[in-house]
Design a protein around this nucleic acid. Sequence first.
DNA 1: ATACGGATTTACT
DNA 2: GTAAATCCGTATG
Length: 193
Amino acid sequence: MKVPPEFYRRPDPVQIARDLLGKHVFSRVDGQLTGGRIVETEAYSHLGDDSMQLHLKRRGTHGHALRAPGGRAYLYSVYRQHTLFNICTNAADKPDTVLLRAIEPLVGLEIMEQRRGRTAKDARKLTAGPAMLTQALGLTPALTGTDLQGDLLWLEDASEIIADHHLLAGPRIGLDYAGPAAANLPWRFRITD
DNA sequence: ATACGGATTTACT
DNA sequence: GTAAATCCGTATG
């Protein structure tokens, strides 16, 4: 069953990032169903997180898509070639997000391999990065604002409980530019194999 | 009009 | 380990 709106509207993005591990994400783009199990996430908060302030400033008007009620998609491109998938959380005037960094492919393997191209031959690299998974799922920045209760892009609760000893918490990736205060926050979560 | 920078991936040595 | 790819939105003049 779908993850309900209340899940996304809670005020602590770190807790939401933690809780999203083990959930399943699906997309139906071009009529093709693809999806997988979430194994790595990062939290971003409008409070006490310099990287979020910089992001909003740098992204200006487009970043205002972040100012949406919890439970919508926010996708944007970085390095002019890759798309990243975030989930808006909290309330519209308190813009927090969770970035999906890695999933374990479950549904629509052939479609995802096709979308990823030749480098997908290595199965471990099919959806093991934030831009890899958006490509595999067929996601583009145009999907920003999509309601995750719809049938285009959504998350499902797989009734999986991840125990703390199967979790790894660490600093977020690629945020050195935002300064040590932001780069050192242990807001990245991953399921250990 | 032009300059700048980045929540990455891939192919190399 | 390092470096190149690659093009868009925002800011600034």
